[in-house]
Amino acid sequence: MKLTRKDFLRVLAGSAVAVGAGTLVHAVGSANDKESAGSTVGKKRWGMAVDLRKCREEKGCDLCSRACHRTHNVPQIPDRAHEVKWLWNERHDKVFPFQQNDYTRQALGETVPILCNHCTNPACVRVCPTQATWKRTDGVVMMDYHRCIGCRYCMAACPYGSRSFNYVDPRPYLGTPNPDFPTRTTGVVEKCNFCEERLADGKQPACVEACPRNAMVFGDLNDGNSPIRQLLSGRYAVQRQPELGCGPSIFYLV
């Protein structure tokens, strides 16, 4: 094949356009903080590993969930349609769909604590039209309840069902609210905040602290020496539906 100069230039221009378009699409598609887009050196990525073996042994335990909901004034709404949940137990086969065979389903009938995955490439952040939800450089996916317009686009986008909407005024369902944390108002979306208010004080998340078996290990995934990384390098762990590309920061030790 003979490549004339004209052809060559045409190919060159074509690839330039392709690269440019690619960059553009990528820029539109990626919603992370500018700073966090670069290298991860020196940056934190908070994450959590849950030892499902321990949860299994404490069948039916929900201390983590209760601690979370008490700490963050999450209402207990009896109507399933209007429920608000940050951290709760869900059946294993619903959390890991298509990951069990016909014969293990029974054995894995136990529940799994689930929460927002604080994804590295969060779909919720990508779609939010107001940046009311965004990703911090330390990996926490935050919510700004002052800014949320309640469009619920993030709920459609999150492939893990981590988000709840305040369909009704949550306050009547609170009991005695924790005075150190605000409540929410009707019409905004909420979810787990990885206890960012406690992290700021150097504390561990409330669920981690509440677990008597230390089944939850919290730490910096970018730090090779952190306990969570040690744990993950020693045992087989799975994320929820990693094939969706969100990059969950919650790991389950099976």
Binding site: P177, P179, D180, F181, P182, T183, D201
Partner: peptide
């Protein structure tokens, strides 16, 4: 403004101003 839709007023304490207990986060 609608601050109070979410933020709570500290529980009323007799004797006026609540104690200056540090540590209240919000």
């Amino acid at each position: 403004p609608n601050c109070w839709g979410c933020h709570t007023s500290p529980p009323a304490e007799p004797g006026g101003v609540a104690a200056v207990a540090a540590g209240g986060m919000r």
